[in-house]
Each structure stands twice: as structure tokens, then as C-alpha cells.
Amino acid sequence: EVTIKANLIFANGSTQTAEFKGTFEKATSEAYAYADTLKKDNGEYTVDVADKGYTLNAKFAG
């Protein structure tokens, strides 16, 4: 089991951190699915991958 950390950075400057656990593939998929649920209210996002894929920095356009 691994933990994927998602740093969510919103256009207004606020941030949120979420963690997803499971296999690498499952946890990564859940992190992206969570970011997708936030698109409606926060706009499209881009992701910078860090820490060999164990940290995802998602920046929302607003």
C-alpha cells in the first residue's frame, strides 16, 4: 500500500491537502478523480508530479 498526497492549489490562493491510499494505480486514480469533482466550481487544473509520482500538485485555474 502506498499513499499519494494531493496538494490542491486554488485560484484564490487557498490550498487543501488530501491523501489517497491503496496500490499506486488506485491511489493515483482516486486523486485525479477527486480533482475532477472540484473542476465544476474551481475550473480546469494542471498537475505537476513530484516525489516520483507520490505527490501531485494540482493548480486550479479558477
Rank of each mutant, 00 (worst) to 15 (best):
T15P: 04
E44T: 10
G53P: 02
I4L: 06
A35M: 15
K21S: 10
D48P: 01
F24T: 03
I9P: 03
D51I: 01
G62K: 08
T37F: 12
T46P: 02
T28N: 05
A27D: 01
T17A: 08
T17Y: 14
E44R: 07
F24R: 07
E19I: 15
A31M: 07
Y32S: 02
F24C: 07
A50E: 12
I4D: 00
N7I: 15
N7P: 02
T55G: 02
T37E: 11
N57H: 09
A58G: 03
E25P: 06
V49M: 09
Y45H: 02
T17G: 05
K26S: 13
K5Q: 08
K21C: 10
K21F: 12
G62M: 07
T28R: 09
T46E: 10
A33I: 07
K39H: 04
A58N: 03
S14A: 12
A6D: 02
S14P: 07
K59R: 14
A6T: 09
V47H: 03
F60K: 01
A61S: 13
F20V: 01
K52W: 13
K21N: 08
F10G: 00
A18Q: 12
A27P: 00
Y45E: 01
T37Y: 12
T37H: 10
E19C: 15
D36V: 05
T28S: 08
K39G: 06
I9W: 10
K52S: 14
L8A: 05
T55W: 04
K26M: 12
T3G: 03
S14R: 13
N12V: 04
G13S: 05
Y45I: 04
K5D: 01
A35H: 01
T3P: 03
G62Q: 08
Y45D: 01
G62T: 07
T37L: 13
K52Q: 14
G43E: 04
T28P: 01
K52F: 14
E30V: 05
E44C: 14
G43K: 02
N57C: 09
T37V: 09
A33Y: 07
D51C: 07
T55H: 03
G13D: 04
L8F: 15
T55F: 04
G62P: 06
I4M: 03
T15R: 12
T17F: 11
A18P: 01
K5E: 04
F20S: 00
G43R: 01
D48Y: 13
Y45W: 05
E25W: 09
N42F: 15
A50K: 11
D48W: 13
F24K: 08
D51H: 04
Y54G: 04
Y32K: 06
E25N: 09
A11C: 13
V2R: 04
T46F: 09
N7S: 06
I9H: 10
A50S: 12
E25Q: 11
I4K: 00
K21L: 07
D51T: 02
K39S: 10
N12T: 07
G43A: 03
K26F: 11
E25G: 08
A11V: 09
A6E: 03
A18D: 03
E44M: 09
A33P: 00
T3V: 13
D48F: 13
N7C: 14
T17I: 12
D51L: 03
Y45P: 03
A11D: 06
F24V: 06
A27T: 03
D48S: 14
Q16M: 14
G43L: 03
L8Y: 15
V2F: 06
Y54V: 04
D36P: 00
T15S: 11
V47F: 07
T3W: 07
A35P: 01
D41F: 12
I9D: 03
A33T: 08
G22P: 00
A58S: 04
L56Q: 01
Q16F: 14
K39P: 01
A58Q: 05
A35Q: 02
F60Y: 12
S29N: 12
E1S: 11
N42E: 11
Y34G: 00
Q16T: 11
D48A: 11
D41K: 11
Q16W: 13
A27Q: 01
D48L: 12
T46V: 12
A33N: 08
L56A: 02
F24Y: 10
L8K: 01
I9N: 06
A6K: 01
T23E: 08
A31W: 05
E30K: 09
S29G: 10
N57W: 10
G13L: 05
F20D: 00
D41I: 12
Y34H: 06
N7A: 05
F10W: 05
T15C: 15
F10N: 01
I4E: 00
K40A: 13
F10I: 02
Y54K: 07
L8G: 03
S14D: 13
T15M: 14
A18R: 15
I4V: 10
F20L: 00
N7M: 10
Q16H: 13
K52Y: 14
K26Q: 14
I9Y: 13
T15A: 09
A31D: 00
K26H: 11
T37S: 15
G13I: 03
L38C: 09
A11T: 08
N12C: 11
G43F: 02
F20R: 00
I9L: 11
E30I: 06
D48K: 10
V49G: 04
N42D: 04
L38E: 04
T23V: 07
T37C: 14
L8T: 02
L56R: 02
Q16E: 12
Y34V: 02
